[in-house]
Every structure is written in C-alpha cells, then in structure tokens.
Computed example of a mutant assay.
Amino acid sequence: MSQREYAEDTIWWSIKNATDYAPHRRTVLLFHTNSSSLSGRPNPIKWVDNTGQVWDELRGVLETFNPNRIIINVDRNIAFGGGLHVGELEVLKEELGEQWMNRTVNEPMLGIEYVATRVPGQIKFYRDMQEITWALIEEAFSERVVHPGITTTEDVEWWFREKMQTLNVSTWNHPRVSVITPESFPGWEGTEDTIQEGDLLHVDFGITAMGMNTDTQHMAYVLRTSKGETDAPNGLKQGLKKANRMQDIALEKMKPGLTGNEILKDCLDQMKKEGIEGQMYSHPIGDWGHSAGAVMGFTNLPEYVPILGELPVLPNTFYSIELYAYHFVPERNETLRFRIEEDAYWVDEERGWEFVRGRQERFHLVNWTGEINSVARSAFQGQSPFNL
C-alpha cells in the first residue's frame, strides 16, 4: 500500500491504529508472508517518508524477499480492492520498474476479507451500539418527542442528531424519518410531513462509534387517542409480521460460500412459494456502513447485482438484513411497504446467523394524549418538540 495524507487507500481505515488520524507524508506498507527471509522485520513493514528514501529501502527489501507475486489495490470495480490512487500507481511504476511491476497482481478478495472479518471481542461492543440505536428510536417514536399535528418528520430527524451529540456517537447514515404511504419510498431522503394521528412512521439511520457502524430501520404507529385507540390496527401488524418472515428467510438462506446473487435467488424463490411480495437489498456492515463483501440485491437491481452480487458471503462478518414486504391493509384500503432492517452476525456453524440485539416485532407506539389549543399550535409550529 502506498498512500498520501488525504489520499488514503480505502482499507487504511481498517488497518490503522486507533490513534492514527491519517497516513503522514507518504506512508508505504509492505505486508509479507515469508518471515525467514525477513527475519526480525515487522509485519507490515512501514515507511513514513517525504524524501524519496523509501524507494531505495523498498527495493532492497524486495531484493531480499524476491516475491513471485505482489498484490496492489488496483481493482476497477470494488472499492476495498481498488484504493491505490492513480498518482501513487504512477510513482510505483517509476520507482520499482518492470522487474517488480511485472509481478504485481490484482486480488480484491484480500482487502474484502480483511475489512469484513470480525474478531470475537467486537460483538460485545457492537451489541452496546445496537442498544443505543434501539433506545434512540424508542424515545424518538414516542409521545416524548412526537406531538401529532405539530411535530414534523424533520423535527424528529433533528432530535436524533442532537441526541446523538449528547451520547458522543456520530452517524454515517443521517436519520431519515418518513410517513409511510402507498407512494412514499423516499430513498436517501425523508418525507416533509407534519405527523398526524393514524400515521405509520419509519426511520432509517445508523450510528458510528469505536470504528464500527450500525444500520437500522424501524416503524411506529401514531395512536388515534382522540378516538380512544390503544393499539395499531391488525392489518398493520400483519404487514410487519410478513416482513419478519422475510428476515427469517434471509438468515436461513445466507450460507457462507454462496454468492449474494445465489442467496438472493433462493430468498425470492422461497418468498414466491409462500406468497410474499417484497424486495431484499441486504449488505455487509461493520467498519463501514455499506461495508466489504457480497450484497443481496439493490433497490434498483432486485433480482441480480453485477460484481458485488457475485462475491461470496463470508462467515465471521456482520450483515444488515434490509428489506420490505408489500401488504394490503384492509383498515386503510391501501397496500404499503413494511420496511425494516436489523444487523446480524455470524455465530458459528451450528447456529449460523443471529440478530445482534433482536428485531422489531411490534410497532413503536406514539401515545400522545395532551391537548394544545390553536394559539399554542400556531406559536410552536416548526419548533423542535423537545423545546415545547
């Protein structure tokens, strides 16, 4: 790996020490496999240099090692195997010459496996992060934050941002809060709605801490307390149950070694057998929100994904099981998308995949029973609900 400050190789962030903020000057890393020929040298060998001395020393190490193959990150399609900047590649060609450049090869799975593989100690802290994520959603989708007729979806998004600041976590995937309707599928944006009684709410966001990321989607129902409602309509509950079944299918079909596209096809076939309509678009997560490894569908590629879908699913990784189920809700005379997402981890060969914290199997309920007169409503319209 050869990189400069602010022009880092993609996998630098998974290799660096926690206290490193960037590769200084020019940072060159050489990972080696033959310890006998490089006795006493660290692995990787690391140079931090802005004088050009690195190249003489690197050539000397290569002469000693005499490798048959030298992997460099030059894949044209996969970010985690293609992080060598074009300027650094040109420098390598000049400094190493044909003798060594003729031995360079492209092996994108090396970077993918390094970034994707989890170590046992991480799961405890990742579970803590999921606890934080769930706690944030449970408070946001409650009467403590949502006041029907006043609070907007954007208000709730800003509540998430401010609350994360107080918890000393950041976000890779900014909160997107939506009111779910037959037409709404806002993608990378939330909706701009004033939340009303009877609304079905949705949030998609992920927090970042300790070099890891979460990605979660939950739904909530705003009770029509003015009409005495105490629970979500049964039709909505059945829609969530159908989406939960899709999660079961995904975990059952995710066999390590199969490609993302093979797993996606198996899932779609099983859904068809069970009469479930919907879409899966699950992805690896961990060091990055959309991390290294095989994907199972994209929203715009529901049945086959070139390149990333042809990668094998790896064990000892984290995955975001992201999907939606279509379901007709009789009480509303509407077909809605029930959109959920939970992070899962590989346990072992016997147990397979399990959700890190669990999954949403019931709606968060907003149970607002207060009354606000028209003067107050006008005064507070557009303000964050936690300032009321």
Rank of each mutant, 00 (worst) to 15 (best):
V61D: 14
L96S: 01
V305Y: 01
R118V: 06
P23T: 14
W47N: 04
G293N: 11
D20Y: 06
M254Q: 09
S320P: 03
I207E: 13
N34A: 09
F205E: 09
T117E: 08
P385A: 12
V115F: 07
I123N: 08
R69E: 15
T171H: 10
I195R: 08
V295L: 04
S184D: 07
Y345L: 01
M129R: 04
H290R: 11
T317N: 02
G60K: 09
R127C: 06
E349P: 02
R26K: 10
I195T: 14
S378R: 05
G382S: 10
S291C: 15
N367L: 02
V105M: 15
T19G: 15
I150L: 11
S39E: 05
G40W: 11
N43M: 05
E192M: 14
T166D: 11
A250K: 03
S142Q: 04
D75C: 11
E274G: 02
K93D: 13
V61L: 15
V61Y: 15
L365T: 08
F355P: 01
Q165D: 13
A325P: 00
L240A: 00
E107T: 08
P67I: 14
W188Y: 07
N50A: 10
M271V: 12
W346V: 04
E94I: 09
R377T: 14
Q238G: 02
N66W: 10
N50K: 15
G83T: 05
N168A: 13
N367A: 08
S291M: 11
M164R: 13
I276D: 02
H290E: 10
W134D: 06
E138D: 12
P186I: 03
R337A: 07
N261L: 07
G358F: 05
Y6T: 03
F125V: 04
T181M: 04
Q122P: 09
E131L: 06
T181S: 12
C267P: 06
H147L: 09
L58M: 15
S35E: 10
R362K: 13
T19R: 15
L236M: 11
S35F: 11
G187T: 11
E252L: 07
I372C: 03
T51A: 12
T117S: 09
G149Q: 05
T166N: 07
W134N: 00
P385C: 02
R351M: 07
N234Q: 10
Q165R: 15
R245E: 10
Q238M: 05
L258C: 13
V177L: 01
G260M: 09
W346Q: 04
F80Y: 14
S14M: 04
R161P: 03
D20P: 04
P256N: 03
F205A: 12
G275H: 03
D287T: 05
R76M: 03
E361H: 06
K241A: 11
E274I: 05
P44T: 08
H202G: 11
Y319L: 14
L314H: 00
E197Y: 07
Y114N: 02
I78K: 03
I180E: 00
F380P: 02
N333V: 13
I321D: 03
V146I: 15
G228M: 00
E349N: 10
G206W: 01
